[in-house]
């Protein structure tokens, strides 16, 4: 029983962390229409940033600034935001698919640099030497996992509420206006490129927080954690859940992560031994098929975007004239 509960906590922690990343992507894609093809670069920037800032000093790579945890996590988010700024400034004023290509490129490059720059990231061996926050208080067992799950859940709720407020604010309306008709927004004196940049950086910083939490959970990060596959998974979560709907984003994260772990378990349990090597390939085909199938048959996702009307929708009654 405790085993099951312990696994439920473990599963929910990872799913909640991914849900935060999906929420960040939802701000970019769902509400602003920005295609981030390199989610994992911002996730990774948050992960490496947090560990470098919050870790203990290491002989063979950078790190050991030993900042208190909230500052380290915030630093990871800032690192992701800075990366987004660089890409965004260069591409957001160009045709839309440039952003897709540039973000995809930065993800490839990020993984490549982390794998090779041993002095910065520990190289392919990964980044060690990070003490999980409040470990002294909760130890290493189930109690710690429960505590960490609560922390992640708290941040998930905070990010969710922040985004819900944001998209209902005037700024949120502006995002949708630009997504739907850029020229119209510009004619009203808005600066689409600037608004897009703000949205892109904010979304990336949120993805960075998710990365920071992920690295904290394992107290370790390596280039293996920042492969392009993660970008696909996070995208699949958003598309299945419903782009433009924050509840859909969270729902999709849990659903797809559940399907991913379940399929991995089923394949390792029931597939013949000689097929085990190909477990990853089969899972990727499944996730690719889910993406394509959703686009073909239910592009709005399971929980579609709810249209927010600025007016009640009731026709205004004509005033009595000439009474």
């Amino acid at each position: 029983m405790i085993g099951l509960l312990s696994y439920a906590v473990f599963f929910s922690t990872v799913a909640s962390i991914l849900a935060i990343a999906v929420l960040g992507l939802n701000l970019q894609w769902g509400f602003t229409g920005l295609f981030n093809g390199g989610v994992v670069a911002f996730f990774g920037a948050g992960a490496y940033g947090t560990l470098i800032l919050g870790g203990t000093p290491q002989a063979d790579h950078l790190g050991g600034f030993g900042l208190i945890y909230p500052l380290a996590l915030a630093g990871g988010a800032v690192a992701a935001g800075l990366l987004a700024w660089v890409v965004g400034v260069l591409t957001l004023r160009l045709r839309q698919d440039y952003l897709a290509i540039a973000t995809f490129g930065i993800a490839v490059t990020f993984e490549n640099v982390m794998r090779n720059a041993e002095a910065l990231s520990g190289g392919a061996k990964g980044f060690r030497g990070f003490e999980r926050p409040l470990r002294g208080l909760f130890g290493d067992g189930f109690a710690y996992n429960l505590f960490f799950f609560c922390l992640v859940l708290l941040l998930l709720v905070a990010v969710y509420l922040f985004l819900e407020r944001l998209v209902r604010s005037p700024f949120g309306r502006l995002l949708r206006a630009i997504r739907e008709d850029e020229d119209a927004a510009r004619s009203l004196g808005k600066a689409p490129a600037r608004v897009r940049l703000v949205s892109f950086i904010t979304g990336s910083a949120i993805i960075g927080i998710a990365g920071g939490l992920y690295a904290t959970f394992y107290a370790f990060v390596s280039p293996q954690d920042v492969l392009p596959t993660l970008t696909f998974q996070i995208w699949a979560m958003l598309i299945v859940g419903g782009a433009g709907n924050n509840r859909g984003a969270v729902f999709g994260a849990f659903l797809i992560w559940g399907a991913w772990t379940a399929s991995g378990w089923a394949l390792s349990r029931f597939a013949p031994v000689e097929a085990q090597l190909y477990t990853g390939s089969i899972q990727y085909i499944l996730i690719g098929s889910i993406i394509v199938a959703m686009l073909l048959w239910r592009p709005q996702g399971l929980l579609p975007e709810r249209l927010v009307l600025s007016q009640s929708g009731q026709p205004v009654k004509p005033r009595q004239q000439g009474a």
């Binding site: 093809g37 190909y278 390939s281 085909i285 690719g288 592009p299």
Partner: peptide, 25 residues
């Protein structure tokens, strides 16, 4: 026929993933 240009970009991600892994299989 139904989506925007960016849906196409996304579909191409999915197609790439399917083709690559089917080839591997």
């Amino acid at each position: 026929a139904k989506g925007s240009e960016l849906s196409m970009v996304f579909a191409s991600f999915g197609v790439a993933m399917i083709v690559r892994n089917v080839t591997g299989l």
